[in-house]
């Protein structure tokens, strides 16, 4: 059987979650691999959520927020836009490939965009193969693992 990646989509309530709803309402089919967790704002996404997802066996994490300038909370997505690149640097140190985490902007009217992203992300992670945590050899990794467990 081919590898079916497990992908967590953490989406903001106002734009990307609604965009995903629209994909559904419009009956746009996409890979069932993406499973969605709702937060009010992408700015709520604590980096530990992403680490937790990997710890629990996710193969990829897709974070969705409103397009720049369109945040329901005016600037929450800007904070996300700063945090996720930092997180990615850390993930790199942990040996987690860059392609496993994506931050994307999806508006409430972009059902088609969500559909495309879900498919793209699934294929991208499928190509990377199942997530196998590298042995935490670096001190940073230890710290992060401790954080995630707490």
């Amino acid at each position: 059987m081919s590898f079916e990646p497990r992908i967590i989509g953490i989406l903001c309530n106002w734009c990307s979650y609604t965009g995903a709803d629209l994909a559904g309402t419009s009956r746009m089919k996409y890979a069932p691999n993406v499973r969605i967790v709702r937060v009010m704002c992408s700015g709520r996404v604590d980096p530990t959520f992403v680490l937790k997802a990997f710890q629990q066996g996710a193969d990829g994490v897709l974070i969705g927020g409103c397009h720049p300038g369109d945040c329901h909370y005016s600037t929450g997505n800007y904070k996300t836009a700063r945090r996720i690149p930092l997180l990615k640097k850390m993930l790199d140190q942990l040996g987690i490939e860059d392609g496993r985490v994506r931050l994307e902007w999806v508006s409430a009217s972009e059902g088609d965009r969500f559909q495309a992203l879900a498919n793209e992300m699934t294929e991208q992670v499928r190509a990377l193969g199942p997530f196998r945590p590298a042995a935490p050899s670096k001190p940073a990794a230890m710290e992060v693992a401790a954080l995630a467990a707490g």
Binding site: I8, V37, M40, C41, R44, T48, F49, K52, A58, K79
Partner: peptide, 28 residues
Amino acid sequence: CGVVAAACPSDAIVSRHFTDAQILAEIE
């Protein structure tokens, strides 16, 4: 919005109904 809950270095801020425990349990 919960932006500060994600930022607090002491985990002192609770984003009600979207607490760390709730979201982590959901991911799990």
